[in-house]
Design a protein around this nucleic acid. Structure first.
Lengths: 248, 248
DNA sequence: ACCTGAACACCGTTCAAGT
DNA sequence: ACCTGAACACCGTTCAAGT
């Protein structure tokens, strides 16, 4: 929004020209570098990028605006990342790494539930970045480590390799679709096609009108849980582990 | 690819200057307008746009290239669509409308299976457009009509409104995630994070290495079917309808 | 080593003008 | 009514130059 300053140049001029600068400071070197002038680093760039994406949306996010928010020229970023796409890739890794890995003493089913919820929480925490995140390479070390936790649950529950592999995939499909659907909400876009008035809905699609109550965000938790339980149950992950043979 | 001509201007000059034009044609009005010069229309623009998106990918698709492929200036398109986003919205509608609605004499479960497969076929037929399609407004008349078919199956199977609504949603999550995952394949992006060599995978994530065989495209059909059956069964849609009371 | 500024080849879209 | 061309305000990225 607005168009805050105009970046470094203006700020520098203001600082130099301002009358209330500390008297000891020589004209060219202010006492302490402004916060925005601590040296650029991948870390700092990533943090600013993620914040900016959530503030503006992924489409409006640009390297030039990122530079502005960092207090540097956009081109300085290229000294730390070879391209914008590399920044986004780094963010994927960082966000995946932030997901909590559950306690290994829990049952496979319990761990699976926790992993599913950690994944979903990530989607809700970074709604604007999530569409990119979810559809791009989880095949870095970090991504594989997370996914392997999910796969391991299927193995630990005693499933044969093929059933475990397919169950893992099916569960992943479900979580991916649920999170994306919850976040996008089928709501964007300008459209000349008018989006069916409530009246027309009630008249022509009474079943949909009746059901739409349950499509509201208040129902997301329960619906997600319903599908998750259905899948876990049917994929061979019972809620109570079948009395472990060698229990304490 | 390449940079074919340079659009209308060059073509026109070639035509006018060419020695082998039909002798009867006056200089300014060739016998029959070139194919590319039949009048622009929403229909023609949409067809060209969808083809171009599948050829170039959604990111590389632009109004300027669309103009070139139509043999007109990019700006002429704005006489038929108010913005690029409106074109994409129109494509969403068109592609959804192309999905086949199953025979109403089939059982609810059979119809649900056919609807799921029609949806999935659409994803495979338009892989480059599908990521946009799947995440944007299915709330035009066309979108609601398609979705209401799915919801109706749950009702026709005898489920109460809430269970039908939630089942519909859960199944939608699954299909959305499965189709997106099959198409994106977690493979894009440049990345400095190297994507874990096969060696490292075998050494550090043996479970994943072992399972990866089943992640290949040859297994997509079977895995999709597995999850679909699991969900239908668990959501109360048995494969054989429970001997209809008033048959034949 | 780290950052800058001008420049290049693109975008989507506005607008006044052409037929 | 339909189409054009120049122009505007943006992009990502290259490159030669500054400190």
């Amino acid at each position: 929004m607005k168009n805050p300053e105009r970046s470094t140049k203006n700020k520098a001029r203001t600082r130099a020209g301002g009358a209330n600068a500390p008297t000891t400071a020589p004209t060219r070197t202010p006492v302490r570098k402004a916060k925005s002038r601590e040296p650029l680093s991948r870390e700092r760039i990533e943090t600013a990028a993620l914040a900016l994406i959530e503030e503006l949306g992924l489409d409006a996010f640009s390297t030039r605006k990122l530079g502005e928010s960092l207090g540097c020229e956009a081109m300085s970023i290229y000294h730390h990342f070879p391209s914008k796409a590399h920044i986004l890739d780094a963010l994927v890794d960082r966000v995946i790494a932030s997901m909590v890995i559950p306690d290994t003493r829990l049952s496979p089913t319990q761990r699976l539930r926790e992993l599913a919820h950690a994944w979903r929480r990530t989607a809700h925490r970074h709604p604007n970045f999530y569409a990119w995140l979810s559809l791009h390479r989880w095949n870095s070390e970090t991504g594989v480590r997370f996914l392997s936790q999910i796969l391991a649950c299927f193995h630990d529950a005693g499933l044969a390799p093929e059933r475990a592999a397919r169950g893992f995939r099916v569960l992943g499909y479900y979580i991916l679709g649920a999170t994306l659907d919850e976040i996008s909400g089928y709501a964007r876009g300008p459209s000349s096609l008018q989006p069916l008035t409530q009246d027309a809905l009630v008249r022509d699609y009474p079943l949909v009108a009746q059901a739409s109550e349950f499509f509201m965000p208040e129902h997301f938790d329960k619906t997600f849980e319903l599908g998750l339980s259905a899948l876990l149950h049917q994929l061979g992950l019972p809620d109570e582990p079948p009395t472990p043979a060698s229990a304490q």
